[in-house]
Amino acid sequence: MTTSTDTEPAPEDVLVALADPIRRQILATLTAQGGATSTSLAAGLPVTRQAVAKHLAVLDRAGLVRAHRTGREVRYEAELHPLRRATRWMDALATQWEHRLRAIKDLAEEPPGP
């Protein structure tokens, strides 16, 4: 995967991580609950704890979760900053396309010259 800096995931890393519906559900659960373990996440999903751990690793690489060890447990929390950066990138891209489409529309609606 490509990153824009050594510590900041690129928008495509975030989009790849969010492409899977299980990972989106994990992130939504972490956001709603404020944190959870892989075991507690697996209890609410149609996949094993090991599969949840693999999904959490993908989310971690994209910077969308952070892990905290408490004794023998590892708790995960959502980290939404990379999602916000990806959203800003998509908004900027949409704005560029809107400007291009508006320019095409203006050209198409110009009255024909003499």
Rank of each mutant, 00 (worst) to 15 (best):
D20K: 06
P82N: 04
A17C: 04
A108K: 14
K54F: 11
Q96T: 10
K105F: 09
G113C: 13
V52H: 04
Q96A: 08
A67L: 06
E110K: 15
A62R: 05
P21K: 10
H81V: 13
A67M: 10
A103D: 15
H68D: 12
G34Q: 07
G34F: 07
A53W: 03
E110R: 15
R69C: 05
H99G: 05
R100E: 09
E8W: 02
L93N: 11
T37F: 06
T5H: 07
A86W: 07
V16P: 03
A10T: 01
V16F: 14
W89Q: 12
Q33M: 08
Q25M: 12
L45Y: 00
P11F: 05
A17S: 09
A62D: 07
A108N: 13
V74Y: 07
S4Y: 03
A42R: 01
L83N: 01
G34H: 04
A51H: 13
R75L: 14
T95S: 10
S38H: 07
V74W: 03
D60N: 12
L93V: 08
I104G: 10
R72H: 10
P46C: 00
L18W: 10
V14M: 01
L59G: 03
A103T: 12
E77A: 12
L41Y: 01
M1L: 13
V52M: 01
K105Y: 11
V52P: 06
S4A: 08
D6N: 02
A57S: 13
G34R: 03
E12M: 06
D20N: 15
T3P: 00
H55A: 09
E110L: 15
A57Y: 08
H99D: 09
T48K: 05
V52G: 02
A28P: 03
S4G: 06
R24G: 12
R84W: 09
L64T: 00
K105E: 15
K54W: 04
L27C: 04
H99T: 05
T31E: 02
E110T: 12
W97E: 10
A57I: 06
E109G: 13
L27E: 02
P11Q: 06
Y76V: 08
Q50A: 12
L27G: 02
L107F: 14
T87Y: 11
Y76S: 05
I26H: 03
L45G: 00
G63C: 03
